[in-house]
Design a protein around this nucleic acid. Structure first.
Length: 725
DNA sequence: ACAATTTTTGTTTTT
DNA sequence: CAAAAATTGT
């Protein structure tokens, strides 16, 4: 974001006409086009952000003089991107108009838009407008409970959750699954969980992320008048990162595009990297043109970022993908430096080399720390790097560490606040029913759950009814009834803002007295950030916005994943862990389309660099508990020698296993070692298990498998009849 | 009911 | 290896 600052300052000088001098021909065409559908294919570094913000303000300026002003729906991939866009647009606009406040302009993610629409009108399809939105953590909690209840091996929850997500983003309901039977690799258990999950959400008036989109579609389908309201409201639709839109989101777009079809989508198929969460590249490859046959297409192929060598290297990498639109990026920047490749014996050596190189660059005065980034496929790789950087006192920032869920204490408080609006929110109730401890233990909770299930009611209702049951000690009843009184009390109040609510609740439960200083601090921070926030607004923010710290990265190098680095730019970029199994990741190598995503990830990483690009890997790497021997990534083969500098201690000989993969131009999944630690298998007799260890060669490969029902078994692969699942 | 201890287990990316 | 779940002891 910081990197965009130079763009921003360039645009500040602009006056009302489109600044032709700082825009190229295609950018100008794309901006001035304001009637009918348009597809903009924007290559890496082609000035996409500039284009979008200028287009937005151009539309506003142009139509502000006519009698019907433009209302633009601008959809972004992340909240940060939306925030950025807001800022830049308001900068552009504020030269003409004073005090522009874009807070109410429809700039945000799909989820933001859907939530806003549903808060207004969801009652039309039988939900209360005070619905709660579950984030993925809450979702997991709920699914785990359902699994426990249905007696399904609980550790499967991750896979099941992603299956359910997949169905939902594909608009396949549980009922449809049941009817169609074995259509989509049918699994009875999953359908059962899906059905229960959906029932549970509905019953407790809760939506998950995908519901936000699905129910908006449902709302529009069942109430065309409401759809019309929005179709008429939005005179123009702009969609950023179009390559990472899923089926349901695309369907929603199709509905919203009004009769003028003033819909403009921007994206780059080569940067579609979110297949795992349902993104569908076909939207940008083919579907959009099919659905909007009249659409104009503009390609932005001039890149202002990468030097020629980096461009060439990245191009020949991405060129290997079959499923893509051809494009020829070009630059007027010189050939620049060659891409550096290094291969090390251990991950420590790799980290040491990177650290040393960074220090050199810094000491020479060529670059400041914030112009440098280290990228990796998986977070676990960053540990070694962090240690090394710490040792050398190089300041760094880890961007978007995935496991930074909200801290416990905040989650607890949020649960209380949710209950004030919706007593039936089971996940929240379960969370705080004994926090702080009030003597309601697992035995009691079990009884309540049993009753809730039997009568098909929420836990809150069940707890209430438990009071009338026989065979429950009066001591327990006292505790329960005071808990119910508590919930009733806090939910009967009407709070002006979040702080008031937290104060009132804490006064009753004395929660903060159980916290340590660190925790107290985070609560206070929460309160000071939300002094004037209304409850519903607050809860939406908590679930829809990730708490990415706005710590300024001034003077620090950035460590982040290839996914997270999308949209950023650095003069110096290191991409680490270029090893088979890591990039491409072994969990994402089972189909050619998955391999194409991995390749795109590498491409995205490469094209973040403007001056210097280093790609590194190491032979020995500790992955979780033990050391693994790594082989160089197949993607390295695709970087042409002439634009790279191969500083390799050991020649990169491509081992026999890789030869099998290379020959055909179509990517084939490696079949040599399909069994890795961590992968899931099915045994004819013992059912599903997880591979713990894998050793031996060729005909004599042995695996250690843990079957939950049977225990640990050692098997010879040749005879075991294992099926990978 | 709850704290302390031992066992198990997962390990990609995120709105 | 670390976090979560299960088991044990009080």
């Amino acid at each position: 974001m910081q990197r965009d600052q130079h763009m921003l300052s360039a645009s500040v000088r602009l006056t009302k006409d489109i600044p032709k001098d700082i825009l190229n021909e295609n950018q100008r065409i794309a901006i001035e086009h304001d009637q009918g559908p348009m597809l903009i294919l924007a290559g890496a570094g082609s000035g996409k952000t500039k284009l979008l913000t200028h287009k937005y303000s151009h539309l506003i300026n142009k139509f502000s003089k006519s009698d019907n002003e433009a209302t633009i729906l601008a959809l972004t991939f992340s909240n940060n991107a939306a925030e950025d866009m807001r800022k830049q647009i308001s900068n552009l606009l504020s030269q003409e108009n004073e005090n522009i406040n874009l807070d109410d302009n429809w700039i945000g993610t799909f989820h933001y838009m859907c939530n806003r629409i549903l808060r207004e009108d969801i009652h039309a399809i039988g939900y209360h407008n005070n619905f709660i939105v579950y984030d993925s953590f809450d979702q997991s909690t709920l699914i785990k409970h359902i699994l426990k209840d249905l007696n399904i091996y609980e550790a499967l929850y991750m896979g099941i959750a992603s299956k359910i997500d997949y169905f939902k983003t594909s608009m396949i309901t549980a009922e449809e699954l049941l009817q169609k039977g074995s259509g989509y690799d049918f699994d009875e258990k999953i359908v059962k969980v899906y059905t229960r999950y959906q029932d549970e959400l509905k019953k407790t008036c809760v939506l998950d992320f995908n519901d936000l989109v699905m129910l908006t579609i449902k709302l529009f389908e069942e109430h065309p008048d409401i759809l019309d309201k929005y179709r008429n409201l939005f005179t123009h639709i702009l969609v950023d990162e179009f390559q990472d839109i899923n089926f349901a989101q695309y369907k929603l777009l199709l509905m919203l595009a009004n009769s003028n079809n003033n819909i403009c989508v921007v994206g780059d198929d080569d940067q579609s990297i979110y297949k795992f969460k349902g993104s569908d590249v076909d939207n940008i490859l083919t579907k959009f043109e099919q659905d909007f046959p009249k659409s104009s297409i503009v390609k932005l192929e001039q890149t202002y970022r990468c030097s020629q060598n980096i461009l060439d290297a990245s191009h020949s990498v991405i060129h290997k993908n079959i499923n893509r639109r051809s494009k020829q990026l070009w630059t007027t920047k010189g050939s620049g430096e060659k891409v550096n490749h290094h291969w090390f014996m251990t991950e420590e050596e790799e980290a040491r080399y990177i650290t040393k190189t960074i220090k050199d660059l810094y000491l020479k005065g060529d670059y400041t720390y914030d112009q440098i980034a280290i990228l990796f496929r998986v977070n676990l790789v960053s540990k070694v790097l962090e240690n090394q950087l710490k040792a050398e006192r190089i300041p760094f920032n880890v961007i978007g560490d995935t496991n930074v869920f909200l801290n416990k204490e905040i989650k607890d408080i949020v649960s209380y606040i949710r209950l004030t609006l919706n007593k039936d929110d089971n996940v929240s109730l379960r969370r705080i029913i004994n926090t702080p401890p009030r003597g309601i233990g697992s035995a009691t909770i079990k009884k309540i759950e049993l009753l809730a299930k039997k009568e098909g009611i929420s836990l809150y209702q069940a707890a209430k009814n438990t009071l009338d049951l026989k065979g429950i000690s009066s001591l327990i009843k006292d505790k329960l009834s005071s808990f119910i009184a508590l919930v009733d009390d806090i939910s009967s109040q009407s709070y002006e803002n979040v702080v008031e609510a937290i104060k009132y609740i804490d006064n009753l439960i004395g929660y903060t007295t159980t916290l340590d200083d660190e925790q107290l601090k985070s609560i206070f921070e929460l309160m000071s950030n939300n002094a004037d926030t209304k409850l519903v607004r607050f809860l939406d923010t908590v679930s829809l916005k990730k708490e990415t710290d706005f710590v300024s990265d001034k003077g620090r190098i950035s460590l982040t994943t290839l996914h997270n680095v999308k949209g950023m730019e650095f003069p110096v970029v290191f991409i680490t862990g270029l090893e088979e199994g890591l990039l491409p990741h072994f969990k994402a190598s089972s189909s050619s389309s998955e391999l194409e995503v991995e390749r795109r990830l590498f491409y995205v990483g490469m094209t973040r660099a403007s001056d210097k690009l280093f790609v590194t890997g190491a032979k020995k790497r500790r992955i979780y508990a033990k050391y693994q021997t790594q082989e160089p990534s197949r993607f390295l083969l695709d970087m042409p020698r002439e634009c790279c500098h191969w500083a390799v201690q050991q020649p990169i000989v491509i081992q026999s296993t890789l030869k099998h993969i290379q020959p055909s131009p179509v990517l084939v999944a490696p079949t040599i070692f399909p069994y890795n630690t961590g992968c899931r298998v099915r045994h004819p007799k013992w059912g599903v298990g997880v591979i713990r260890d894998c050793y031996g060669e060729n005909d004599d490969v042995r695996v250690t498998v843990n079957f939950p029902d049977v225990g640990i078994k050692r098997l010879a692969l040749k005879f075991a009849n294992l099926e990978r699942i």
